[in-house]
Design a protein around this nucleic acid. Structure first.
Lengths: 200, 200
DNA sequence: CGAATAAACGAACGTTCGTGCTTTTTTGTA
DNA sequence: TACAAAAAAGCACGAACGTTCGTTTATTCG
């Protein structure tokens, strides 16, 4: 009766693998239908599991949403941050970050586009822990852009970071809606132009 | 028994007023919760109506969504397009359109931000008539930007239109998430800079 | 091997969803 | 003022939602 385990362990057991499998699928579903449209029943049926089996890993839908946000942040770190770290601080790092991001977006035909574009639009008017988690991830990204812009000698790093962010997100938005790949070219050229304006 | 009217009339009767009232509220709700999160029950209770009373005006949820998109397009026309028409074609018109849009976004503290930003992110992976309606509205907006950019003598009007779009939408996105009004200044300055690069 | 615990299952709950059918109230007009 | 049409309400439905519960199957470990 004592020490009742309500949720699977999050460490080495079999549960950790299942949890990772669930979150990988949750990430794809949420990129398409949003974190609110993500349902435990759908998730379970796509995984060949029972609703309660999936549910037990998180204890509530909100915890599932928060775990999905964390998984998205980790995937973003691997797909975008990590590759860009090989470039030196400053303008070259900025170029590498933007390029990795755009490549990631352009290559993601299969899944539902940028997780952060979808979920930030979904939660920008929905207070609560999920919104805060998304906002923190975006602030971290913008903050890193700003930090690198400062190292690159930008006159107004905050402004510089905003412009990079806007162009990348704009390309994702337009590509998703129109299917026109030309927007990635527009975005890359705009970024190059801005980078070229930095002090040498 | 013959000629049964399933939906209220869309013309001069009282039904037209009610329909407009419903759509006005639907627009606000959809700006916050999206067109999928918009529910007939919630709409009815906020309006002090019955679910079936609201439902009868549209016949299906999808029709309600399509009518809401149309209402959003009309509001956008009044708030952004119309005021900008007083400026002459070309660069001045572009400046007026962007300014009206940014003012509209910055002044919309009460409601849920840009309807088009919210719904395009929501439907970019959801095929169907609603997506097509949203895409058509966005294409019309981008097309008008491009047309004016061409009249202003831009070397690549499509690229020019994309950059304006990205900066305005980026400002909306960042403001909604961070609450930082400085992004509107960033956006206005970026637009002025691009307009200044046009041939005189 | 056997006991303990982790993991997944299946059924049910109360609620809300969109939608259909019927009835009542309101509106416009002859 | 009477009456037909329009508008709104009432009621019910099947499905899906998140969640809880008790039970069963897998896994781990002494």
């Amino acid at each position: 009766m004592s020490n009742v385990t309500l949720e699977p362990r999050r460490d080495g057991g079999k549960g950790a693998d299942t949890r990772a499998t669930i979150l990988a699928r949750a990430l794809d579903l949420a990129s398409v239908d949003g974190l609110e449209g993500l349902t435990i029943g759908r998730l379970a049926s796509e995984l060949g599991m029972s609703k309660s089996g999936v549910f037990a890993h998180f204890g509530s839908k909100q915890e599932l949403q928060l775990a999905t946000v964390a998984a998205a942040a980790e995937r973003f770190r691997i797909a975008v941050i990590e590759p860009a770290l090989r470039a030196p601080d400053g303008a070259l790092r900025l170029r590498a970050m933007a390029a990795a991001y755009l490549d990631h977006l352009e290559g993601n035909d299969y899944s539902g586009g940028c997780f952060w574009a979808a979920t930030s639009a979904e939660y920008d008017d929905r207070p609560g822990p999920v919104r805060e988690a998304i906002a923190a991830a975006l602030d971290a990204w913008l903050g890193e852009l700003e930090r690198q812009a400062r190292l690159a000698g930008a006159a107004d790093p905050g402004r510089f970071a905003f412009e990079l962010y806007a162009v990348v997100m704009g390309a994702n938005s337009r590509f998703r809606m129109s299917g026109d790949r030309a927007v990635f070219g527009y975005a890359r050229e705009a970024i190059e132009r801005r980078l070229g304006e930095l002090p040498t």
